[in-house]
Structure formats: C-alpha cells, structure tokens
Nucleic acid binder design. Structure first.
Lengths: 194, 194
DNA sequence: CGGTACACGTACCAGTTGGTACAGGAGCGG
DNA sequence: CCGCTCCTGTACCAACTGGTACGTGTACCG
C-alpha cells in the first residue's frame, strides 16, 4: 500500500477531525495541527467543501471496512450478531469516530453542502446486507428489512445515549434486553397488518 | 401571556434556526431574516454563545411541553404509549425541529460551547419519567429504566432513519414490530444476568 | 414637564476566513 | 544541462465574523 501523498494526508485529516469535530473547522488551524499550510489542503482537495466530501467518503469507507470484519456467518444467530456489533461500536476507543459520525449526520440532515452524501447509504446499505444474509436462512426480504431497520435504530439510538451519558452499563443492559427479546421471537410484520 | 420582547424574539429565532440550521449561523443573516439588526441579538442575549444557550433551553422547554401533552394515563399500555409518541415525533410538520435537535445533539457530543447543556436531561429526564410511571404499575425501577432506555433508543434511532431516508412506511413498520414485540413481553434484565 | 430605563440602529473595529498569485524546489527523463 | 511534473510555502486579498461605541427614539413615572 504505497498510500500516495493525498491519501496519507486525508487519513491524517480524518483522524484529526475525529478529535476536534468538524463544526469549528478552519483550514488554517487544521493545517497547522498537521504541520503543513492551509494552501496544501486547498491544493489537494480543491476547496474546504471538497475536503469535507473526501472526509465523508473516508468515513464511509472505514465503516464499510468495519462492517466487512463483523462476523456474518449465517450460522450466527441474529441476536448474537447484534451483540457483536454493539460491542464493537460501544468501545470507548472508537467514540471519537462515533461522535464525528453523528455530528456529520446532524449536518447532513440539515442539507449542508459536502455532507449530504453521507445520507445515501447510511441506512439502506445496512438493510440490503441484512436482507441478503436473511435470504440464506429463508427469511422473507420484507421481514428481514424491517427487523434490520429496527436493529440498526436500536444500535444508533443507544449509541446516541452512550455518547451523551457515558453510561456503558445502562446502555449495555438495554441492548441485552433487546437481544433477548429478539431471541424470544419478534413477530413478523404481516401478522400485525403490514 | 404577554411574552416580553426578548421571549418573543427568541421564539422567532428558534423557528428561523429550525429552518436554516445552526451550523452556518451568522448573527447578521439571522437578524436580517428577522427584520432587525445583529446588534439587537447581542443586546438581548449578550453574545452568540449566549443566544445559542437560550435556543437550546427553548428547545428543551418545547420538548418538555410536548412530553407533558402525551397520554400518560397509567391505564395506557406501554406499547400504545410508544406508538403515540412515535406518531407525534414522526409527523413531517415537526421534522425541522427534529433536524435541529439532532444537529445540536451532534454538536453537543463534540463539546461545542453553548450546546452541551442539551445533553444533561436528554436521556435521564425521559427515563426518570418512565420509572415514575412504571412504579404505579408496580414495575421495579431497574427494569423500567432499562426498558425506557431501549424505547427511547428505538424512537431516536428510527427518527434518524426517517430524517435520512424519508421512508415513513418503513420506519412505521419497524416501530410497529418493536411495539408488538414489546406487547409479547420483554424479558426482565435480572433473568439474563443483569 | 423632566428624567430615566429600555429598545434599537449605524458605523466601525480587529480578527479570521477561504481562496489566489507567485515563487520556488525536488526528482526525473531526455 | 534542460524542461517538466508534482508538491509546498509565503504573501496577500476581499469578504465576513462577533463585538463595541455612540446616538436616538419612545414610553412610562414622578
């Protein structure tokens, strides 16, 4: 992996932004922290917005990479898969990235330029993956999609909680309650009028 | 309600910010939109940060007001309460406020000045309320707290989904799946090792 | 009437912002 | 040696930022 000047710079930019946030971002301070000049950021990314776009893409790239490393053995029970996912995301070591993710999410729903690309795959790519996996178990796509949607919401909602309160034990307990309830069997939507 | 000049101004500020977001906020543009001068905003709120603080407080005030108007008759089943809450929050008419809420949330977890106050009651005040309600039904506080935490996460997570995808039907279905599963009986944490 | 507290606008300030013009300098193929 | 491409820094710009100084109008109270 030769990386390339630009890619290596981008990686450092993302790491730095994960620590400091993107709201009060200034090209000059960012460049100074990175030991270069703001001119370089403009040179490599064209503009501040261009840099933001690349940051968002890099975040997505890393999320996909993390996703790919999750245990998706069809033999694994869905409840265990969600437990494993939670364990990974709730780790304090990745909190800076979670924070950045939610900050960008908040900006994206407001339609700020450069960030909106984040919204495109932010839900559906996860649902699609789950539908595909469930199909191997013979679960109908509609059901799998709804359940995945719920599971994703639980994880993201609890992450929001965790980042605000820092209450790892409380959020762990809530996730476990969900997982156990899920194991007990969630109803299929078609049985309740959907 | 005589309102008062400052309160009336704050109300208009919040409405305006809900439409435009708080990220690219400038006192001058905001004032111009409101038909006044940025000097007035400083005069009434002391500084930009002071104004932000008041905006956050106003958001909390409105949330508490909305919360108070929800049907909390102890006779209402928890699953119906969460359905009612979802119906209220998923209404497109309040999307601008949801967007603002999540944008501020994202800034707050990054520790930006003026916004962090949002985090204090953002989870616990809801949990406390639920614990109190559950007590009237004889539900133990620990269980009620965990279940409330999960329900809150589901709603917030699905709201994030809804704001990103606009898929009302999909998120409705996911919430319904959760509500039905909840009616079927969630396990108590003590039974699973907590 | 006078005065005093509040509400408001204009003009201005210093600092910072993103972006640009320009000048190299390092490496390399010819 | 030249020339060329990639990379980097300095100096600068106009625009905009939050905040301040100062003056004005207005309403209420004595």
């Amino acid at each position: 992996m030769p990386a390339g000047v630009r890619e290596e710079l981008l990686s450092r930019v993302v790491d730095r932004i994960a620590e400091q946030g993107v709201g009060a971002l200034s090209l000059r301070r960012l460049a100074a922290d990175l030991g270069t000049s703001h001119r370089m950021l403009i040179y490599h990314f064209g503009s501040k917005e261009g840099l933001l776009v690349e940051v968002v893409r890099e975040i997505e790239r890393r999320q996909r990479a993390a996703l790919a490393s999750v245990d998706f053995d069809p033999a694994t029970a869905p409840a265990d898969a969600i437990r494993s996912m939670w364990r990974r995301l709730a780790d304090p070591a990745v909190w800076p990235y979670e924070r950045l993710f939610f900050e960008l999410y908040g900006q994206a729903v407001q339609g700020y330029p450069g960030t909106t690309a984040l919204l495109e795959g932010v839900v559906d790519s996860w649902l699609d993956l789950n539908v595909e996996l469930a199909a191997r178990r013979g679960v109908p796509a509609e059901v799998a999609r709804t359940h995945a949607r719920l599971g994703l919401a639980v994880i993201r909602g609890l992450l929001l909680d965790l980042l605000a309160t820092g209450d790892r034990a409380g959020t762990d307990a809530a996730l476990e309650a969900f997982a156990v309830g899920y194991e007990a069997g969630l109803p299929v939507p078609s049985a309740v009028g959907y």
